[in-house]
Amino acid sequence: MKLKNSLKITVLAVMGAMLGACGSIEPWVKPYERDRLADPIMFLDANPVSTAYIQHVYEAREGARGGEGAAGGGCGCN
């Protein structure tokens, strides 16, 4: 019982800390530290035409589909 209460308090404390942090998250990778992420070899999808084609091949040859997602990005390199 004591363990259960401790667990509840810990979970609430972590959730509270996370909620509090939402308002003021400091980027832990600064814009000037993103030079490597801006390198084309780090692009998750550097060639969208090629990626779309090969996904089409896999979907034709296998029973699974979706979830491959796409590149997105978010390196904020602009």
Partner: peptide, 16 residues
């Protein structure tokens, strides 16, 4: 499905 995959890839390749 391939069409949709292409569309989603084209749509999502952009960086927000």
């Amino acid at each position: 499905l391939g069409v949709a995959a292409l569309l989603l890839a084209l749509a999502q390749q952009s960086l927000a």
